[in-house]
């Protein structure tokens, strides 16, 4: 087990320019909820439309059936193509449909993935779609697999707060970018940790703080973080 890469739900896509994008693939729970919101919107509008069109009698009902057909098949397609790959429901949950290579979804892909909803719906109530999503690597339902698309989380985790002002010091050793991010993360997430835990963490880095202990070590790491964020010593 230990030789496997750490488990995560990120797909790395390398662009032709050699930049690696990290896409955070979205799974069944958020997507089911987004689907619920979309259904509420769709059927709410259709219900209102029915009330109005009923006044026209048989012709009204015919019109409503046309509207039902168009909504059922093209509501997600249009939103996905023209609204950044997100239906209103997906927008609420910060989701976005993209191609498997990370580019935004186009007409053919949106059409295929939404027309194949019919297949995902089989045998009843999206049975195949749910199972495919649980089993496939990138939480793709059958329509996604056919269209080469996937659904990702668009919004990043909560933005980090600014550091309180204070001393800035250069770290005594050169640090890799990841290590710098750890230090900055420590400084930024300080307020969410209790002081004992902060001190405990800071004391792990005796090599950087020169064996300082307690709050002094925490402050020293914060000073390094400020320097890394560009503040002048």
């Amino acid at each position: 087990m230990s030789n496997l890469a750490p488990l995560d739900t990120i797909r790395h896509v390398e662009t032709p320019e050699g930049i690696t994008l990290s896409l955070r693939v979205a799974g069944p729970v958020a997507r089911a909820l987004a689907w619920g919101v979309d259904s509420l919107i769709k059927y709410g509008v259709l219900w209102g439309l029915l009330m109005v069109l009923m006044l026209l009698g048989g012709a009204g009902l015919g019109l409503w059936l046309v509207a039902l057909f168009l909504t059922e098949w093209f509501y997600p397609v249009l939103f996905e193509v023209y609204a950044d790959g997100a239906t209103p429901g997906k927008k609420v949950f910060g989701l976005q449909v993209v191609h498997a290579n990370g580019t935004s979804v186009d007409w053919p892909a949106a059409l295929i993935r939404n027309l194949l909803r019919a297949v995902d719906f089989l045998p009843a109530f999206h049975g195949f779609g749910v199972v495919a999503m649980l089993v496939s690597r990138d939480f793709q339902r059958l329509g996604d697999l056919a269209a080469g698309t996937m659904v990702i989380h668009r919004q990043p985790p909560a933005p980090s707060p600014a550091l309180p002002p204070g001393l800035a010091l250069p770290p005594p050793w050169p640090l890799t970018p990841t290590e710098q991010q750890w230090l900055i993360g420590f400084a930024e997430r300080g307020p969410t940790l209790n002081p004992e835990r902060q001190a405990e963490l800071a004391e792990l880095l005796a090599g950087l703080t020169g064996g300082l202990r307690g709050i002094v070590a925490v402050e020293r790491l914060r000073a390094y973080a400020r320097w890394l964020l560009g503040e002048q010593p």
Binding site: L4, L7, D8, R24, A26, G27, H153
Partner: peptide, 17 residues
Amino acid sequence: AVELRPRTAWEATDLGV
């Protein structure tokens, strides 16, 4: 055996899957 990083709650449920 899992990657530790700040996640949104929905991402956490995905990790469960």
